[in-house]
Nucleic acid binder design. Structure first.
Lengths: 204, 204
DNA sequence: ATTTTTACCGACCACTTAGTCGGTAAATAA
DNA sequence: TTATTTACCGACTAAGTGGTCGGTAAAAAT
């Protein structure tokens, strides 16, 4: 399949550096030359491996961004435990990681969704696919939480998922402008407050 | 003061069209020529009134964006009524307006905060100033709500403000990708759920 | 040993970018 | 009437922009 190791290695190098710069400076504010310069590669190399800037970015979304979001926000959320505790732990961990990252420029998925919204539907769709998986994952753990008696049966799982994703995306945007620690603390406290109101009250 | 009417009129026209295009396509993806073409004005006119693209954008922030955010999200939130109902009404109205706007490209403030985050600190600061006023305004109405017996005294007003702003910014980002109606509905329902958990329970 | 493919180079192209500058018609001030 | 200022024009510049293309050294296939 991908026995062409050299090819894969170079493409991967380009994708990694590309993502780094796109994430840091934005897609429209990063030129292919910028990426090539930082890799000491030439135009020829780039267009040998990728058809266009857009094609290049799509490959980055499907290879790198998908995995980043999966490992940080999707995979950690599963299991038969209390969904609220699992989600809380996952979000706390994600925010803490961002907080300690000197090079944090916001939530990668939300940054690009916002940058491409209505401006490039091809890329937007690939990004929204990731969002949808995340959403479905949250909904399913909340539903499971209902049958396991953690989540109140009247709770609208889809609504909660939407609210969770919205608030997470928003707080990550705000965190880029300093005071992350305080933002995280306040955010997590309100998240717990919110979760508490969704928790199944034990029958007495 | 601003008796130079012609000057003001032209500048204002440029700012309005500039904001339109910056909002639609993003700052880095919109050239001055784009704006000038759509106004049938020349380079000379632009650099007669503004020093640079950045200076131009700053003037847009301080004149137009400030007012938009104020009138939509800050001014409606005041008075001595129940803060939760006031905020709910204000958010509902803002989301509904966005929903029915064919040309909606997301929450203007959050879009630009995200686009300039760490990439242009001068502009970022002007944008964050608006955010801060919004935040202070929310905090103050929540505090007033405590003394008026609407808001539970244990509630952390700053935390609630952060959570509100975060979730609003997030949901507006998501709304650009269709299904706005459903998103708004789900969001508002969860907002009420959250508010309910913060409401002062009447002593029996 | 020869041919073909791979992976890359870098000059080049048409076009766009933010910004400059000499000019000018009309309005205003003297 | 004359001098000056206002508001704007548009050609120009230097530095990019995404993308093309002929070439080439080394590796792989024959």
């Amino acid at each position: 399949m991908d026995k062409n190791l050299k090819r894969m290695a170079t493409m991967h190098r380009m994708q990694v550096t590309g993502l780094e710069l796109f994430y840091k400076n934005g897609y429209y504010n990063t030129s292919i030359d910028d990426i090539l310069k930082s890799l000491s590669l030439s135009k020829g190399a780039f267009y040998y491996h990728f058809q266009s800037k857009e094609d290049f970015f799509v490959s980055i979304v499907q290879n790198l961004i998908v995995r980043k979001v999966y490992s940080m926000l999707i995979e950690p959320i599963e299991g038969k435990e209390n969904p609220f505790l699992v989600i809380e732990k996952c979000f706390e961990n994600a925010l803490e990681t961002a907080e300690h990252n000197e090079m944090d420029y916001g939530f990668i998925l939300s940054n690009f969704i916002s940058e491409f919204n209505r401006r490039n539907t091809v890329i937007s769709n690939y990004l929204m696919d990731i969002y949808k998986v995340w959403e479905v994952n949250l909904i399913s753990i909340l539903q499971k939480g209902k049958s396991d008696g953690y989540v109140d049966r009247h709770v609208d799982s889809e609504g909660v998922a939407t609210y969770l994703i919205s608030s997470y995306m928003g707080v990550r945007t705000l965190m880029v402008q300093g005071n992350c620690r305080n933002l995280r603390y306040k955010y997590m406290q309100q998240l717990r407050q919110y979760f508490n109101s969704l928790t199944q009250k034990e029958a007495v």
